[in-house]
Every structure is written in structure tokens, then in C-alpha cells.
């Protein structure tokens, strides 16, 4: 149970970064922390006590495997996170070219 709460705290750290920080790069880092917290949480949900890695091997009959499905799903989620992060970073670079700053309070051409 403690581990789950630590995950929640990590998630909240990321959310704090996204909501409160003024630097674009720090916001992106916050988003990354959030994504990793949720991935960690999902992997932990699949853990079984004394479980082993879910790999079928020759001449072995493993009974106490951990749940392999969350690991597969988290891999997918990591790939998605990679794509989003790469896209946001490239947008941030272009924003820096246009505005000359990473400060989000100075980037406000859109209003209303």
C-alpha cells in the first residue's frame, strides 16, 4: 500500500510541475514525471507476491509469474509518452525561436 501512495505522491509532484511552473521545459519535465508515475503504478498493479518475470523458458515450469499484461500495456504507454514528449519539445524549441523566452507568463499573444 505504501508503494501506491508513493506513486500517487510522484504523480502529484508531476502535476504540481505542470500547473505551477513558469518555464516551458519544467512543464515538460513535470509531464514526464506524471507519465512515469502512472506507468509505475500500472506495473505495480500487476505485481504478485514472490512473483517471477513472465518469460517462458526451456525446461522450466514457472508457476508464480507476475501479471504480464500491465507490462505490455506500459510499454505501449511509454511509446506514446515518447511521441508526445518529442512533439512538445520540438514545439517548445520553435516557441523559443519566436518569442525568445521560455517563460510562460511572457508568452501570451492569445487572449480571451
Amino acid at each position: 500500500m505504501t508503494l501506491y501512495f508513493l506513486c500517487l505522491m510522484l504523480f502529484c509532484v508531476g502535476l504540481y510541475g505542470v500547473l505551477r511552473k513558469r518555464n516551458l521545459v519544467k512543464i515538460i519535465v513535470g509531464l514526464g514525471i506524471m507519465e512515469y508515475a502512472m506507468n509505475l503504478f500500472f506495473v505495480l498493479l500487476g505485481y504478485r507476491f514472490d512473483g517471477r518475470a513472465p518469460i517462458v523458458a526451456r525446461d522450466q515450469n514457472i508457476l508464480n509469474m507476475v501479471d504480464p499484461l500491465p507490462q505490455a500495456l506500459v510499454l505501449t504507454s511509454i511509446v506514446i509518452g515518447l511521441a508526445v514528449t518529442a512533439l512538445i519539445i520540438s514545439i517548445a524549441i520553435r516557441i523559443y525561436e519566436k518569442y525568445g523566452t521560455f517563460d510562460i507568463t511572457k508568452i501570451k499573444k492569445l487572449k480571451g
Binding site: L24, L87, I88, I91, R94, I95, K98, Y99, K109
Partner: peptide, 12 residues
């Protein structure tokens, strides 16, 4: 500039 700003906000 505006489009990048909007896209950043939307993506986050």
C-alpha cells in the same frame, strides 16, 4: 507564434 502557443497549451 500563436499557433505554436495554442498547440503547446493543447498538448499539455
Amino acid at each position: 507564434a500563436e499557433e505554436l502557443e495554442a498547440s503547446f497549451k493543447y498538448a499539455i
